[in-house]
Design a protein around this nucleic acid. Structure first.
Lengths: 156, 156
DNA sequence: TGTTTTGCTGAATTAAATTCTGGATATGGA
DNA sequence: TCCATATCCAGAATTTAATTCAGCAAAACA
C-alpha cells in the first residue's frame, strides 16, 4: 500500500499535530473542503499509520515525575537478538528506546520520581534483564524544549 | 496556584493521554460523572498546564524524516546564559533540548531527512550559533519505543 | 472506450459539545 | 459558630459538530 500525501493531507497533519482537538468542521474550513471529505481523509491517515495516535501531553511534574534521564545501555546480544530491548520496552518508565550506532547499544529516555526512584528502577528492573551488561546515566537538569511536532512541509 | 489532582483527574488524564479524541460523553461515562462536570475539569486541567497540549503524533517516515539523531552539544556559556539554547530551540528539526549534568552541556533530539540533511543542518545552522563549541552526534539505527505516555498513578 | 475505483459535495440524521440554572458541599473569615 | 463565598456537580436546554449516505465527477485501469 503506497502512502502518498498531497498538500491537503499535509495541511491536515500540520493542524492536527498542532491541536488534535480541532473540530472536523474547522479543519474543513481551513482546507476548503466539505467536512465529510475531511473526515474521510483523517480516517485514512489514521488507518494508514500516518497519524500514529492522538494524545494529550501531560506535564510530568504534576504527576510527580520530576526526574528525566537518558540512559545508555550495553547488551551482550548479537545483531538480530533484541530480547533486552523487548524487556526494556515493557517498562512504563522507559518512554523511548532507540538502538544506536556506536559502542553503546541503546539509548533510553526514562522518567522517574526522583534520583532514588531511578536507582530503584535500575536495581529492581534493569539488573534483572539477562544480557544487559552496563548502563551509563545522564541526568537532565532542565528541559528547554520537548516536542513531538515534526516540521511538516507544505508540499512534498 | 496549587495544583492538586484527585483520582478522577488522574483517570481523565490517563484516558486522554491514551486517546485525546475520546468524547467528553465517553469520558463522563468512564469516570461516572455528568458530561458538563468532566468538561469543566478538562478545561481546568488545560488551563492549569497539567495538560500541555493535545497533539497528533505523525509518523516521521511518511513526511520523509528518516533520520533520528541525538546530539551532545558543548557551549562556552556560563551558568545563567542560555542564548545557545535559545537559538537551538528555535530550529524545528530540534525536537527536544535538555540541559544535562556532566561535561556536555546539552542533549538535542533531532530529526532530518537523511545524513546529508543533518550535515547540512549542522553546517548551516548549528555552526552559526555563537558560543556553540562542539557537537557529538549519535545516530539512531532503529527506534524500538517512542512514546510520551507517562505512567500515571491511579491516586496520588 | 467502457468499467471501476476514488474522492468529493451537500443534505439528513445522529450524537456530542456547550451553556446555564440550581443545589450541595466545602472553605474561610469574623 | 455562623454567615458569606467559592467549588463542584447534576441535569436540562440549546447550539454545534460528527457521521452517514446518496449521487456525481474525474481519474485510473483494463
Amino acid at each position: 500500500m503506497s502512502v502518498t500525501l498531497d498538500s491537503i493531507d499535509l495541511a491536515i497533519l500540520t493542524q492536527l499535530q498542532q491541536d488534535a482537538t480541532t473540530s472536523n468542521t474547522n479543519l474543513a474550513k481551513k482546507v476548503k473542503m466539505a467536512p465529510s471529505a475531511v473526515l474521510e481523509r483523517v480516517k485514512k491517515l489514521k488507518q494508514k499509520g500516518v497519524i500514529l495516535e492522538q494524545t494529550a501531553r501531560v506535564h510530568p511534574e504534576y504527576i510527580d515525575l520530576k526526574l528525566l534521564a537518558f540512559i545508555f545501555i550495553k547488551s551482550s546480544e548479537g545483531p538480530g537478538n533484541i530480547s533486552v530491548a523487548k524487556q526494556l520496552s515493557k517498562l512504563p518508565e522507559v518512554l523511548e528506546l532507540h538502538h544506536i550506532a556506536g559502542e553503546d547499544c541503546y539509548i533510553a529516555k526514562v522518567r522517574a520520581r526522583d534520583p532514588q526512584s531511578l536507582a530503584q528502577l535500575m536495581r529492581d528492573k534493569f539488573s534483572k534483564i539477562p544480557g544487559l551488561l552496563s548502563t551509563k546515566t545522564t541526568i537532565v537538569l532542565e528541559t528547554l524544549k520537548e516536542s513531538n511536532h515534526l516540521p511538516i512541509p507544505k508540499k512534498m
